[in-house]
């Protein structure tokens, strides 16, 4: 399967998941997307920026002191009453990450597990 097919599979497997994307954290560009409805570019840009902030940017740096600051953030959730945004860094390429936009009551343990499995398969294709 190619990357888009892997993202499609995760979106179907995680109930309440509306969008899954693969992004380059350094350039803040979305590389591939799977979505129930075509997202507008502005939305994708905002997601990429949020992924950068939460995994590599200022918010991640502020949090890293809590675990000694020697390793980067791997996982982040930005959550409101209306949605959950999940960000998970790729183990194969630390400058890339998976983004999932889900319902506010999504099963986060399952979503993270599926995201890890998806990234493992994507990394295995490299």
């Amino acid at each position: 399967m190619d990357i888009t097919a892997e993202l499609d599979a995760m979106r179907v497997d995680v109930q309440g998941c509306a969008l899954v994307a693969y992004t380059d954290l350094s350039s803040q560009l979305v590389l591939s997307t799977s979505a129930a409805a075509n997202p507008v570019q502005e939305e994708m840009n905002a997601l990429s920026q949020a992924a950068h902030l939460a995994l590599d940017g200022a918010i991640a740096e502020g949090a890293a002191v809590s675990w000694g600051g020697e390793t980067p953030a791997e996982l982040a959730f930005l959550m409101t009453g209306a949605e959950v945004r999940l960000f998970l860094r790729s183990p194969a390429n630390s400058s890339e990450a998976l983004i999932a936009v889900c319902a506010p009551d999504v099963d986060l343990e399952r979503a993270v597990s599926e995201a890890r499995a998806t990234l493992a398969r994507i990394g295995g294709q490299g």
Binding site: A54, A63, A64, T71, L75, A76, F77, L78, T80, P91
Partner: peptide, 11 residues
């Protein structure tokens, strides 16, 4: 949003 929750976690 009335409620916000932010999680940042290491590997």
């Amino acid at each position: 949003s009335l409620a916000c929750g932010t999680v940042i976690a290491p590997a």
